[in-house]
């Protein structure tokens, strides 16, 4: 899907970013570059969910 990497004078990958695949609205997107500004902000805000069982509501 992505660009072929090139060997230029014995060096590979100059200027190439990492690909970061994320799910938005149910489907995956190959790289964050294509996200619109709002969704990009949303992805950046996402926090991980822990697996503790006593995650009761805070009041």
């Amino acid at each position: 899907m992505n660009t072929q990497v090139k060997n230029i004078n014995g060096q590979v990958g100059e200027g190439m970013d990492f690909e970061r695949i994320r799910r938005i609205t149910g489907y995956l997107v190959g790289t964050l570059d294509r996200f619109n500004d709002a969704k990009r902000a949303e992805v950046e805000d996402r926090v991980k969910h822990g697996l503790s069982k006593n995650g009761t509501l805070t009041h």
């Binding site: 805000d45 969910h49 822990g50 503790s52 995650g55």
Partner: peptide, 8 residues
Amino acid sequence: VYYPISAF
């Protein structure tokens, strides 16, 4: 998405 909460 920004709110910390357990998965369950």
